[in-house]
């Protein structure tokens, strides 16, 4: 499907907005995207306003009612110190929805800069940086995180940096291949002939033209970032108690599921599952909208 259609009038101003509007309408027609974004927005609303409408304080314990199964009072039951699981699941979206997007943002910024540099200069810069990035990509995030957390200590900042820097090479690779295609085009040659600086050519001339692949890669990475943040907080790294974070709740309660206390972990697991699938559906929709 071509992006320039007969509907766009031949005026400069509207023609520039044409492709973007096209992508927007294409997104609105994509059922995958709409379902995904609805799930994500639901959790964003919960993260922002959840504490105002949940029935209980997610941090308030109530030892007498500990480990109560789901009932009319406690829809999802209570955990081992009597905290209301429903309230915790609703508010538990907050930490993961701050840490994962920030990590993705860091990865996108660092990865875009690296990709522009290696793709534009090629030669030795490209060879050296690309080799190092490839070596990095081979190391699983969990391992990097373990090392970083042993060395730097546990905090949300560490998690953001670890995930951001682990994902940066992957984004750099996408950006690099986009830049390699762009730099052969006439407008880049024109900028070079005008003696524009390399930085200007990269960031002002090339960057706007490779936004679509960067956007697609970023939305895909956000899904992986949520995967990684959830896993790390399950391992006890990063988000710390008493936060009602989902991964953390599962890690402090799963030891008891042998005793049949399924409600202390099931709803958190389903919450993570829904968020991850939501982000991935949305990412799939974005990918489709840009590649149609």
């Amino acid at each position: 499907m071509s992006v320039v259609q007969t509907t766009s009038p031949p005026q400069d101003d509207t023609r520039r907005r044409g492709p973007l509007a096209e992508v927007f309408f294409s997104l609105m027609r994509s059922r995958t995207f709409l379902v995904g974004i609805a799930i994500v927005l639901f959790w964003v609303v919960c993260a922002l306003f959840g504490e105002h409408f949940v029935p209980y304080d997610p941090l308030a314990d109530d030892i007498i009612n500990a480990l109560a199964p789901p009932s009319r009072d406690h829809w999802f039951g209570t955990d081992q110190i009597g905290r209301d699981v429903f309230s915790r699941v609703i508010v538990g979206s907050r930490d993961i929805l701050t840490v994962a997007p920030l990590a993705t943002l860091l990865a996108t910024v660092a990865g875009t800069a690296l990709g522009l540099l290696t793709g534009y200069f090629r030669g030795i810069v490209d060879d050296v940086v690309s080799r190092i990035l490839e070596a990095f990509m081979a190391i699983p995030v969990v391992i990097v995180a373990l090392l970083a957390i042993v060395a730097l200590g546990t905090s949300k900042t560490t998690v953001i940096i670890v995930i951001g820097l682990s994902f940066a090479p992957i984004i750099a690779r996408t950006v690099r291949s986009a830049v390699l295609a762009e730099r052969e085009l006439d407008y880049v040659a024109a900028a070079q002939l005008r003696h524009e600086s390399a930085l200007y050519t990269m960031f002002v001339e090339i960057l706007p033209n490779i936004i679509p692949p960067i956007l697609v890669e970023t939305t895909v990475r956000l899904g992986y970032a949520i995967f990684a943040v959830a896993t790390l907080s399950f391992m006890g790294f990063g988000i710390q108690p008493p936060s009602p974070d989902w991964g953390l709740s599962i890690s402090s309660n799963y030891g008891m599921i042998g005793g049949g206390f399924w409600w202390t972990v099931l709803f958190d697991a389903l919450a993570i599952a829904s968020l991850v699938i939501g982000v991935n559906l949305a990412a799939d929709g974005v990918h489709g909208a840009f590649n149609d």
Binding site: F234, G247, G260, L266, I277
Partner: peptide, 23 residues
């Protein structure tokens, strides 16, 4: 395939434990 691939291992692990191990 797409849905199960994007889920963290501990999430599917917990759900599988509940289904096959506990229930």
């Amino acid at each position: 395939g797409l849905s199960v691939t994007v889920l963290p291992e501990f999430v599917t692990g917990i759900i599988l434990i509940l289904i096959f191990g506990v229930w």
